[in-house]
Write a protein that binds this DNA or RNA. Structure first.
Lengths: 325, 325
DNA sequence: ATGAAAGCGCTAACAC
DNA sequence: GTGTTAGCGCTTTCAT
């Protein structure tokens, strides 16, 4: 591989001039531009981004830390993050944390040693101290980390309220709320939203906690559905809703006739299920894209107009609730 | 941030000794180890991996190029790749190619400039010249790139044969084959497997091509199901099968009573559908893990025992075919 | 067993 | 406008 010195030599200029040319910095004569460009062509020269990073302390990488890319919630986010990163010449380092704080810390450290330019993180619920004193920009996505850290997310409480309300309007009177893990911000908020909707009304409610995981959710739903007569389920994620659908099916309960179900997230999964799932959709792509744009601004030293971006949630009515039938 | 010189100074040794300590290379006295270790602790020193890369030409990154991480096939692969990479101290750079050769080339170039150690690629169907003369190791995953490039994949033809056979054994006589995009290796192989199973038998068959994409598959399936009496569908991917299930549902065709369906891939989606999908499962995690281990061996200069690894496909019988009911 | 010093390929003062 | 040169932080001969 040719290096900058080879180029300089072949072009008959100094490395400084070549460097200026490469970075569009400082004055360069048209003539110099011409010869340098030619030399670069001829040698098929590509600058070493690593050598550059060693100077600039910027490797043009963005670390994306998510609990688990297999959870359908995250690929859509990741995709958006990558798209805008690409447009600004950054590339994405994918990190699965499994909600484990040690893994988060490991990646935070390793990637800083690699001079990543910034982080986008869907954090675990644990304490945030390892995030607050990084020396690179960071933005939170979906889950709040610390007041000092910018975030983009949806209004989970309002979203959950809407979803639950929809069930009530459709005539449900015996609701099951499949809430997410206690202590996880968005899950708690969604639960609050559920309560907002039912409070003060003459509704029977049953509340169970279950992880954002298919099998566990199915199991939990099956247990409840066997014991109690439920006519509406508000699930705190699409994946839990999918589990509930499966449970209902195995018990011979028909959806949406005997049981209506509302999910949350608006992942592709929700539209791919049969019947397709009514869900409180987050604009996942938009969230990812905004977060990505946000870190990049931070990296480039620009001001953020907003420290927190709230994306409205939207109720998407499909086939698991009656008005959609 | 402290650097190696600070450590050397504090420890009262030379940077060379510290470097040896860091890399477990060459002789170091116990005494030296002690003081260096102490100095590192005290200064909270972390070596600059970028500076190291500049010497070694190894940034300890593995580029993972996939068509689209949103396709549920790839997150499971990516997850496995990441898990084993982590165990060997590599980190994953995620690249979505959208099957576009320009994007592949862009990433190949950029990442080489960043000294990535190797690539794992689920290639687009295009010509392979830009892959064959890289100066870093590469392994293909799922899709064959070039005879010279190691690959790990399943036996798609045999898998498809098994899946189709299952339909026949369950009494299907009017089959629809939803084949994948022509020209895409695995899709072609699966189609061959389908033909292997039906050839010479008294079976009505209908063949349609559709992308590995939900909406398009649903549309195609709906069209066919409206016009013809079909009692079994072999879909070339789970996502297409999901589309078919939706189409059947909307036409009031019951699964598996009136119509049986077999998918392909064994993604999580297949088990999350209701009824759950009978599918020809690939061991996605294993494929990803093996591919990852393979590039790492290559990176470390080890011999590969096998240049091509074939993972057997496995028929997973669930609820969309009758024997599973 | 350890140190001095060259070099990896680039950027950025500073001088001309 | 352009060149010289000192780093960036590490690895690695080659001496000693």
């Amino acid at each position: 591989m040719a290096n900058i010195r080879d180029v300089a030599q072949k072009a008959g200029v100094s490395v400084a001039t070549v460097s200026r040319y490469l970075n569009n910095k400082g004055y360069i004569s048209e003539e110099a531009k011409r010869v340098i460009s030619a030399a670069i062509q001829e040698l098929d020269y590509r600058p070493s981004l690593v050598a550059r990073s060693l100077n600039t302390k910027q490797a043009m990488f963005i670390g994306l830390i998510v609990p688990d890319i297999v959870n359908p919630f995250f690929p859509e986010l990741a995709r958006a993050v990558e798209d805008v990163a690409l447009a600004y010449d950054y590339t994405i380092v994918l990190c699965n944390s499994d909600e484990k704080i040690e893994k988060e810390i490991h990646y935070l450290n390793t990637l800083q040693q690699k001079y990543v330019s910034g982080f986008i993180v869907a954090a675990s619920q644990a304490d945030a101290s390892h995030y607050t004193n990084l020396n690179v920009p960071i933005v939170a996505i979906d889950r709040r980390i610390h007041p000092s850290i910018p975030i983009v997310a949806t209004d989970n409480r309002e979203g959950a309220r809407m979803g639950t309300e929809h069930l009530l309007q459709n005539g449900c009177r015996r609701l099951l709320c499949m809430k997410g893990p206690a202590g996880l911000g968005p899950a708690d908020d969604r639960f609050s939203g559920f309560m907002d909707a039912v409070e003060g009304k003459d509704i029977e409610i049953e509340i169970v906690e279950c992880p954002f995981q298919f099998e566990a959710s199915e199991e939990v739903a099956r247990t409840v559905l066997r014991q109690r007569s439920i006519d509406g389920i508000f699930a705190s994620s699409d994946i839990s809703a999918a589990g509930a659908m499966k449970a209902a099916y195995s018990l011979g309960i028909t959806v949406p006739d005997q049981l209506q179900i509302v999910g949350y997230d608006g992942t592709k999964l929700s539209s791919q299920l049969t019947p397709s799932l009514t869900t409180v959709a987050q604009d996942l792509y938009r969230i990812g894209a905004l977060a990505s744009r946000m870190v990049i601004k931070l990296i480039e030293g620009q001001e953020l107009e907003e420290h927190e971006i709230q994306i409205p949630a939207e109720l998407v009515i499909r086939e698991t609730t009656r008005s959609g039938a």
